[in-house]
């Protein structure tokens, strides 16, 4: 095993991990800040992937249009789901209703897009960054975009008025209401924003991976894993956890491809138990 190989594995892990981090961050935001356990997360993600595929390949819509329109539709969907279906529900109610919505989404995908696997089939051009070390251009782009997006999102939460209001509602819902903030509406908006993250992740993912009707559940599981390792609500943590899992994944694939999932999930269980004291009520956004 040469140093080149180690570096290649490392970089690849980081780039793939950034994608994990990105699609997990939306879930993290929902789980931690909004206390919504969304079991339909994976389904919405693959819906975005299928829709982008159809827009680009079948309906011949330019990418820019998809990037502009899909997040808006997703925002609306997120807002409606939160404020019509999930208002004031307990964990149980949320799990059931989001599973129900996920089934509807899965069913609609099969009905309208057919269960055939879809791919944009883009062969990734390589960039040689050092002798013998080549990295994928799309992955690099996604890595940078994901990092920029998450930083922007942080800035939005920290600096903008709406962001501040969202944080206020998340921290002290009742107090915020006393201050004249329509908390329900704000949480709906925040949930809508998290759906925007799903839409953007979906648009990016379809440029790298094929999508099948069963892909949703593995994305969902991976998102849960990353979100819980990072600490619910900790979006920066989710990005780092994604990177860590990506790197671990790359090396495991090289040395013991058969047991990647077993090792990662065992680690997940151990990490959760070890840091159990610090997980409760964790809310940094």
């Amino acid at each position: 095993m040469t140093p080149q190989i180690i570096i290649t594995l490392l970089l690849n892990g980081l780039f793939t991990g950034a994608i994990y981090g990105l699609f997990a961050s939306g879930l993290t935001f929902q789980l931690g800040s909004l206390s919504i356990a969304n079991f339909g997360y994976g389904s919405w993600l693959i819906l975005a992937m299928y829709t982008t595929f159809f827009a680009l390949k079948i309906w011949n819509v330019p990418l820019a249009f998809v990037v502009l329109v899909l997040p808006v539709i997703y925002f609306a969907a997120g807002y409606v789901i939160r404020n019509r279906l999930l208002v004031g529900g307990s964990l149980n109610v949320q799990i059931l209703s989001t599973i129900g919505i996920a089934m509807i989404v899965d069913g609609l995908i099969i009905l309208f897009y057919s269960p055939a696997p879809r791919t944009l089939g883009i062969i990734e051009p390589l960039i040689e960054i050092a002798p013998g070390i080549r990295i994928g251009a799309i992955r690099l782009t996604v890595f940078i975009l994901a990092a920029v997006l998450l930083v922007l999102f942080q800035l939005f939460l920290q600096r903008s008025h709406l962001g501040k209001v969202i944080r206020a509602v998340v921290l002290e819902k009742e107090t915020a209401m006393l201050m004249g903030i329509n908390s329900e509406r704000i949480i709906g908006i925040a949930f809508g924003i998290s759906f925007v993250l799903i839409a953007i992740s979906g648009i990016m993912l379809i440029h790298l991976f094929p999508v099948t009707t069963s892909a949703g559940s593995s994305y969902q599981l991976m998102s849960f894993l990353i979100a819980t390792i990072a600490g619910l609500g900790n979006m920066r943590g989710a990005f780092y956890a994604g990177l860590a899992i990506g790197v671990l994944n790359a090396f495991l694939l090289y040395f013991a491809a058969s047991f990647v999932t077993v090792v990662i999930f065992s680690l997940f269980v151990v990490v959760l138990i070890l840091r159990s004291g610090r997980t409760a009520g964790m809310r940094h956004i």
């Binding site: 529900g89 109610v93 599973i99 129900g100 919505i101 089934m103 509807i104 069913g107 099969i110 009905l111």
Partner: peptide, 22 residues
């Protein structure tokens, strides 16, 4: 006859149950 319809129906009834019988 309609591949996805059964999923849609099942999901809908689940959501309705949760809404009316939380």
């Amino acid at each position: 006859s309609f591949g996805g319809v059964s999923l849609v129906a099942y999901g809908t009834i689940l959501v309705i149950c949760v809404l009316f019988l939380p």
